[in-house]
Amino acid sequence: MTLFSWLCPCFRKGGATSDAGGDHHDDPTEPGDSLDLIFDLHTLQLATNFFSSLNQLGHGGFGPVFKGMMPNGQEVAVKKLSLESRQGVKEFTNEVMLLLRIQHKNLVTLLGCCAEGPEKMLVYEYLPNKSLDHFLFDKRKSSSLDWAKRFRIVTGVARGLLYLHEEAPERIIHRDIKASNILLDDKLVPKISDFGLARLFPGEDSHVQTFKISGTHGYMAPEYALRGYLSVKTDVFSYGVLVLEIVSGRKNQDMRLGPEKADLLSYAWSLYQGGRIMELIDSTLGKYNGDEAAMCIQLGLLCCQSSIIERPDMNAVHLMLSSDSFTLPRPGKPGIQGRAGHWTTTTSTALTNTNPSNTTRASGGSGSFIEDYSRNSISTSSFDEGR
């Protein structure tokens, strides 16, 4: 079966969404309109000036992303699967299946796809401000993110995750929430993107034990990185790290800052324990709401607690952010183990491979790799040390 014929039924299935909440709506696509979601390769070639480097917006583990102009004048972003990538086909079909079934103002909109011969592409709405990391970690641009905008991004991402976890037709765990996967529209409204690693949880399932660990070190929850325990709290942990980045204006791992400050989560916890939490706030910010900033830091730490049970779910997070009278509990010790490194990874835990040093660099983008090692080689003795 060709990928094209495999995808067509997905288009016909993609539509109904939950009626819960007011920020999402039913996909109006009917079976007869399914072919409108299939883009012709030649059309995309013309739209992107034959995938010119001048049109390239970025490059990730999936492959390059290009800006395109359709014949009707619509601007689009074309995500092109790298032909050399060792990852991608599964992620490609996974992303199509998921995004055609969900719509929310804080999720990127998939317009369709192209699958002709070896070429596989996803076509999205074009978002002119690229991703959050382009602003947040560039001191020349971060000043354009005043506190009000940062707080709206914090709350917008929370609403998007709440939809995925609780209000979508089936529960979806993103597995790769990070600054580069938060796109910004012309009004800096955040939209969660890149669902290639997302995991669908049908029925009432709330967690799973998996042998394949996929995500980004630095954002990855320790119970998932070390034990393969995947749940909605995995996304909550990543969200907590992201919130701390938004408030501090720095990456979660930055060795240039010295050993005390290199790991953002450890540093934030140290400041919190010492009653100096306001020192974490981005120095480039002018005026800001001190109460909101302090609340966001405490919320980030709550989301990053080592204890899975103690972490709030996204429903509680949304309540904390939207309520003026909500009192946040004191956070417990954050989960530090299993977060070493700051590059994007896809880690496969192979039970039959007993060589922990067997590392192969993949060709799917800067800094990405696949690592195979024995599950028994991972020490989890220091994982849950309590508070």
Rank of each mutant, 00 (worst) to 15 (best):
L7P: 00
C8E: 11
R12G: 02
G14D: 08
G15W: 01
D26I: 11
T29W: 09
A47D: 10
T48E: 05
N55I: 01
L57T: 12
G73I: 11
Q74M: 02
Q74E: 10
L81M: 14
Q87D: 09
T93C: 06
P118S: 09
P118D: 14
M121D: 10
E125C: 06
F135E: 08
K139F: 03
S142M: 09
S142W: 01
K149E: 00
F151L: 03
R159A: 01
E167G: 01
D176R: 02
N181M: 06
L183D: 03
L183C: 05
L184Q: 01
L188Q: 00
K191L: 03
I192T: 07
L197R: 02
L197D: 06
P202I: 08
S206Q: 14
S206I: 09
Y219D: 10
P222W: 05
L230P: 11
K233G: 07
E245H: 03
S248T: 11
R250G: 02
R250L: 06
L265Q: 07
S266Q: 15
Y267K: 02
R276W: 01
M278K: 07
M278A: 13
L280K: 00
D282P: 15
S283K: 10
N289T: 05
A294I: 07
Q298Y: 05
I308V: 15
I308A: 03
M320W: 06
S322P: 02
P334L: 02
G341E: 11
S348I: 15
T349S: 13
A350M: 13
T354V: 09
S357R: 12
G365D: 12
G367K: 09
S368T: 15
E371P: 03
I378W: 05
F383M: 14
D384V: 12
